[in-house]
Simulated assay, not measured.
Amino acid sequence: MAEDDPDTDSGNGQLFALTRDKVLLLVILLVGIAGSGIVRRSLGELGYNALGELVFVLGYGGMVFAVWYGWIRPMDISGPN
């Protein structure tokens, strides 16, 4: 009976459970890294190399800021009192 109780789950498998936060993080990483890189290359091939570099820097930097602001900043990283 205790095996079916969700409150007594030992947490095994929760690391890889697909949650809304994890999906959002994956999308932000995908768009920030791959998306901005693809756009940068496409603009470079069209002759807009400087604009492509700007798009990549803003996309990658925006991704780093979003991950920091949404996931790293709210963490309570303090030592024992």
Rank of each mutant, 00 (worst) to 15 (best):
M1S: 12
M1A: 13
A2E: 14
A2Q: 08
A2L: 09
A2S: 14
A2G: 14
E3A: 12
E3W: 10
D4F: 06
D5R: 03
P6K: 01
P6I: 00
D7Q: 09
T8W: 05
D9K: 11
D9A: 14
D9I: 01
S10E: 14
G13N: 07
Q14W: 02
Q14F: 05
Q14D: 15
L15H: 10
L15A: 11
F16E: 02
F16G: 02
A17Q: 14
A17F: 00
L18G: 01
L18C: 09
L18P: 03
T19L: 07
T19R: 03
R20D: 08
D21I: 02
D21E: 13
K22L: 13
V23W: 00
L24G: 11
L25S: 09
L25M: 14
L25E: 09
V27P: 04
V27S: 04
V27M: 11
I28T: 10
I28M: 06
L29G: 01
L30E: 07
L30C: 12
V31S: 03
G32V: 08
I33W: 11
A34G: 04
A34P: 03
G35R: 08
G37L: 15
G37T: 15
I38S: 01
I38Y: 07
V39Y: 06
V39E: 01
L43S: 06
G44Y: 04
G44T: 07
E45L: 10
E45H: 12
E45Y: 00
L46A: 15
L46Y: 03
L46E: 06
L46W: 06
G47E: 05
G47I: 08
G47V: 06
Y48N: 00
Y48A: 12
L51T: 05
L51C: 08
E53L: 09
E53A: 13
E53W: 07
L54I: 13
V55Y: 03
V55K: 02
F56I: 08
F56L: 12
V57R: 03
L58D: 01
G59W: 08
Y60A: 14
Y60F: 15
Y60P: 09
G61T: 00
G61Q: 02
G62N: 00
M63A: 14
M63Q: 10
V64Y: 05
F65N: 04
F65S: 06
V67S: 00
W68S: 10
W68A: 15
Y69D: 11
G70F: 06
G70H: 04
G70C: 09
W71M: 00
W71F: 15
I72Y: 11
I72F: 13
R73G: 07
R73C: 01
M75W: 03
M75R: 13
D76C: 08
D76W: 07
I77H: 01
S78A: 08
G79E: 06
P80L: 12
P80C: 03
